[in-house]
């Protein structure tokens, strides 16, 4: 019984059923383990590898330069920016807004630098359903290729303050 001391010698061989189950479990988990490097080699989506340390002020400055350079319009006060195909782009998370609205071209690959200027945020691209942590002081580099034209929503899914449930932005993908 589990609340009494075990027999003096309890180091006993496993039964057949126990052995089979342990071997099955180990095999299954090994399969899961190797699926990560295999997915990395052959799968299209993997978590971003490259990130940079950058102060929030510096990131805001670089991102504003980018916005000024490629701005093509404004939507409800948020700049709409169309970076050249294959170029670098910047996305700022700030209580409680995403800036700018990026206008991307389908099938092109962009280098999107993502950071926050105040607290932590979460980038949630919907309805594609891709999610990344956004941490001030660090810029994540997302090398991203939109594969479908349309109007997409970006939500914040890391609690960032009382306006957290209002923090939504846009990504537009054109043919």
């Amino acid at each position: 019984m589990p609340i009494a001391a075990p027999e003096r010698i309890w180091w006993k061989p496993l039964s057949r059923a126990e052995r089979v189950w342990v071997v099955t479990g180990v095999s299954f988990l090994l399969l899961l383990s190797v699926s990560m490097p295999i997915w990395h080699a052959y799968g299209a989506a993997d978590n971003p590898e490259i990130s940079y340390r950058i102060s929030p002020e510096e990131f805001a400055r670089v991102a504003q330069d980018f916005i000024r350079r490629y701005q093509v319009g404004t939507y409800k006060g948020i700049p709409v920016v169309r970076p050249p195909a294959g170029a670098s782009a910047y996305l700022i998370a700030q209580r409680f807004q995403w800036s700018p609205i990026l206008e991307l071209k389908k099938g092109e690959t962009y280098h999107i630098y993502l950071s926050a200027t105040d607290v932590q945020h979460g980038l949630s691209l919907q309805p594609v359903n891709m999610n990344f942590q956004v941490v001030p002081g660090y810029a994540s580099l997302l090398t991203l290729t939109p594969t479908e034209a349309g109007v997409y929503t970006i939500l914040c899914n890391q609690y960032c303050g009382v306006g957290h449930h209002l923090m939504a932005g846009r990504v537009i993908v054109k043919e």
């Binding site: 997915w39 359903n129 942590q133 899914n157």
Partner: peptide
């Protein structure tokens, strides 16, 4: 699972 986390993180 490493890459699968993209689908669920903070949802």
């Amino acid at each position: 699972h490493g890459p699968v986390s993209i689908l669920h993180h903070n949802t």
